[in-house]
C-alpha cells in the first residue's frame, strides 16, 4: 500500500515536471494522451533494457521488425508484441509491471539491471 502511494506521489511529481518541460514538443490534447506518450516511450526503454542485459535474447529481438541496428523502435509492431507479452515474466516481473514502473518514473526512469 505504502509502495503504491509512493509511486503515485512520484508520478504526480514527474507529471508536474513533464508539463513544465514538454513545451518544445506538440502539446498533448489531454493529460491521458500524455500518458500514452510516456507509456509508449517507457516501453521502448524497458525492452531496450531487456535486450542490452540479455534478459530478452538479442536473436529473439532481431526476429522482429521493431528491432533495427541494435535499437528498439517505437512502432506499431512493438505495441503489438507488448500486447501479447504483457504477462510474460522478465527478470522476475511481468512486462506489465516493468512498464507501469517505468511509466510512473518517466522520463527519469533508468534501467536497473
Amino acid at each position: 500500500m505504502m509502495r503504491r502511494r509512493l509511486a503515485s506521489l512520484l508520478a504526480v511529481a514527474v507529471c508536474t515536471q513533464m508539463l513544465a518541460s514538454c513545451t518544445r514538443i506538440e502539446p498533448p490534447t489531454s493529460p491521458e494522451t500524455g500518458e500514452a506518450e510516456r507509456r509508449g516511450q517507457a516501453l521502448v526503454a524497458v525492452v531496450q533494457c531487456f535486450v542490452d542485459h540479455n534478459v530478452l535474447a538479442r536473436s529473439e529481438a532481431e526476429s522482429h521488425s521493431w528491432f533495427e541496428n541494435g535499437k528498439v523502435q517505437q512502432t506499431a509492431a512493438l505495441v503489438d508484441w507488448a500486447s501479447s507479452h504483457a504477462e510474460t515474466s522478465f527478470s522476475g516481473k511481468t512486462l506489465q509491471v516493468w512498464e507501469d514502473e517505468a511509466t510512473a518514473g518517466w522520463p527519469g526512469w533508468r534501467c536497473p539491471l
Binding site: 500514452a36 507509456r39 517505437q74 506499431a76 512493438l78 505495441v79 503489438d80 507488448a82
Partner: peptide, 8 residues
C-alpha cells in the same frame, strides 16, 4: 490492444 501506447 493499442490504446495505451503512443507510437510512430
Amino acid at each position: 490492444a493499442s490504446a495505451s501506447h503512443e507510437f510512430t
